[in-house]
Design a protein around this nucleic acid. Structure first.
Lengths: 160, 160
DNA sequence: TATTGTTATACTCTATAACTATA
DNA sequence: TATAGTTATAGAGTATAACAATA
């Protein structure tokens, strides 16, 4: 199979979709290990992890809003947050304007925990990247660069 | 920060890792919706989904082997498989050489179910791909192509 | 006696419902 | 009376332990 006159059109949308699926699957299988191991070690439930992640890029918010965003029931979030509170990962402050409501936010410890979990995820990808040949690495970087210009693809910020 | 003499090295491994993480996160958030909705509709547990997926590219195997591969306890798999059996998605045949063991495999219906779930996942990615501008699409295809040559990245096969 | 799979029991997480306190 | 959050209860799903059948 050699390129003739149509060099760039070697790939249909079907092909590209399958390529993307294959690479994503590989990365998911490969890079999740340490992350889930750490979650297990921390003794946190999936809902608690999701809550931490959600709160990490958000102003203090009510339990109801968190429940809504996570697609969980209010009681489920209430219990998840209770557990996070016991571990000192979040704080709850009574809302001054409506004393029924409470605003949840991460503590410094909670923020550190989220960052360490994100770092583990990123570390898995980093291993993959480090294992690439230069030509693979450069091609991938060029392939991703245009996508990062899209407003809906929020850039993940590094640890510093 | 402007590029001076090193044009192609605009991206460090750190940058590339973050780019990859950003795009993956976007795709995961974006493309999972229909899939999980269908899982819910089917009334299958996550362990049952994993079991179906595992068995879809594997010869009939024992419950113990499945449990081992999924990182689940044998009883958990036993119950998951029992549920799948009730729905007609798997069959269990007593092993002739060791009558304690049973070999599990997908039925035709089970295979169709897996295929429909995979199709939903792929459809989400396909939507993303279809929404790309030509230059984004071509760049991404060129960026992924070298990776697909790697033996550890198993190509996903299309429905036909 | 060891091993494969099933059944028993206890635990976690969830959702719905009942409740408490504000509004 | 309605709403934010908590506590009560019941239902999945899991793991460990006890069991049955076979090796």
């Amino acid at each position: 199979m050699q390129a003739t006159a149509a060099p760039a059109k070697a790939s249909t949308n079907d092909d590209l979709t399958l390529s993307l699926a294959s690479v994503m699957r590989h990365l998911l299988v490969t890079t999740g290990r340490d992350f889930f191991q750490e979650v297990e070690r921390l003794g946190l439930s999936l809902s608690q992890i999701k809550t931490l992640q959600l709160m990490s890029d958000r102003e203090p918010d009510t339990l109801g809003a968190v429940a809504e965003d996570l697609g969980l029931s209010l009681p489920a979030v209430s219990r998840a947050v209770e557990g996070l509170h016991k571990r000192g990962l979040v704080k709850r402050v009574e809302c001054s304007s409506d004393r029924r409501a409470k605003r949840v936010s991460l503590t410094a410890k909670g923020r550190r925990t989220v960052e360490s979990l994100v770092a583990l995820r990123v570390a898995g990808l980093r291993q993959f990247v480090d294992g690439l040949e230069p030509h693979e690495r450069d091609a991938l970087a060029d392939g991703l660069a245009p996508l990062l210009q899209r407003p809906e693809i929020t850039p993940l910020r590094g640890s510093r």
